[in-house]
Design a protein around this nucleic acid. Structure first.
Lengths: 215, 215
DNA sequence: ACTTTTCAATCAATCGTTTGATTAACTTTG
DNA sequence: CAAAGTTAATCAAACGATTGATTGAAAAGT
């Protein structure tokens, strides 16, 4: 039973990811997690050593999945910088909406002051995404395609922050938008295309008309 | 000693607000809070009834302060809609940077699934801000000042989300921007003006050039 | 004299973790 | 192939530590 063991561990990780996202790390007790997963409480420590180890295991699993998905848009030569930005937005949103619970858990952990092994690894992972975006924008500026008075890092904060606000504060955003933001179907069918459309227009306006005072 | 009592309660609220922001509600024990505040643990229950009551008291205090600050930009007739947006951004950022810990605490609470009295009140408070912004944008659209194909609610998510990302994930944003985001002096001197400048340009580009395909 | 505030001590409950026994699965051996 | 032996997985029970909260008495204030 080598296969089933992996399946069971994966199932625990799935459940724990969701429970951590819903209750936060401190608010999610090991009894709650094991109960939701339908396994004995001792199995968590048997498989992952500790609660912290469980968190780390969740992160490691997603990280290896992520690294397989990274596509170096920046190194492509044949397309315009704006097209690269469009591709980045598309890829970013697609990636984010596939790990809803994980993303939520991740930013809850980042909001706390404590520095742990997990916190550092999260930071490193985010910086990968950030570096990729920076490269695209700076190239666009050098090419003269974008204006020169751009705040690249602020754009990243906008990109990441807009998504986080919508997904991580579902009580508010559901009320704003008129549909349940905790329902994955709504996220995929309604929010996702709307976000792509909006963010593309927003960044396009900023990147291409930022120095334009004609109006 | 009527005055000192209020002072001491206020001091506890100050400390608790910070500790909640740093550790989250579940991660902040009553012993830690009382220890940091330099008061006996039993004082928390004596003054606020329970840990939850303490959280509620923190919120109530800020709410009454907020309601005194609300200025109805929307109802002013003599200025352009764009000027109103500029005023809104200015007022929003000024307000946010005065309650750093509170804001952080607030969004940590919103990220959790549990629905409490506090959660509902937070939602109501945010909706006030949202409604005000909506009014300004819709007026601008009706006046023909802005394009008609705007996503107002997404703009709100951008406004709130950009700020949240910068302030609520200090580990990452400090690394991005090269200065310590947990230092209030840096926030006031460096981040605040940069954010105002950026958000103004970003929204201006989106509001005024959104339908422009000349480039 | 009386009320309010403060405190150390303690409460029951819950926390993450460990234990030792039991069961299941696989390997070795006769 | 089947019995014995070995390892891995699972479980109820309990561990010490910490949690939020309460107590009743002492201290301070009026």
């Amino acid at each position: 039973m080598e296969k089933e063991k992996t399946d069971k561990k994966d199932h625990i990780l799935d459940v724990a990811e969701r429970v951590f996202a819903e209750h936060g790390f401190d608010g999610a007790s090991t009894r709650l997690i094991s109960g939701e997963a339908g396994v004995n409480m001792a199995m968590l420590n048997y498989y992952f050593g500790s609660k912290e180890g469980l968190l780390l295991a969740i992160f490691e699993r997603r990280t290896t999945m992520f690294h397989g998905l990274i596509q170096n848009i920046g190194n492509t030569e044949s397309i315009s910088s704006w097209q690269k930005v469009e591709m980045y937005i598309e890829a970013y949103i697609n990636r984010m909406f596939n790990n809803n619970c994980f993303q939520k858990m991740l930013y809850q952990e980042l909001a706390l002051s404590r520095k742990t092994e997990v916190t550092d690894k999260i930071t490193q992972l985010l910086m990968l995404n950030i570096t990729e975006f920076r490269k695209i924008i700076h190239e666009g500026i050098e090419r003269g395609e974008f204006g020169s008075d751009l705040d690249t890092d602020m754009m990243i904060a906008t990109l990441f922050g807009t998504k986080n606000f919508l997904v991580n504060t579902p009580h508010v955003s559901s009320l704003m938008f008129g549909f349940d933001m905790t329902d994955q179907a709504n996220l995929d069918d309604k929010l996702k295309p709307r976000m792509k459309n909006y963010l593309t227009k927003l960044l396009k306006a900023y990147l291409l008309h930022e120095n334009d005072n004609s109006k």
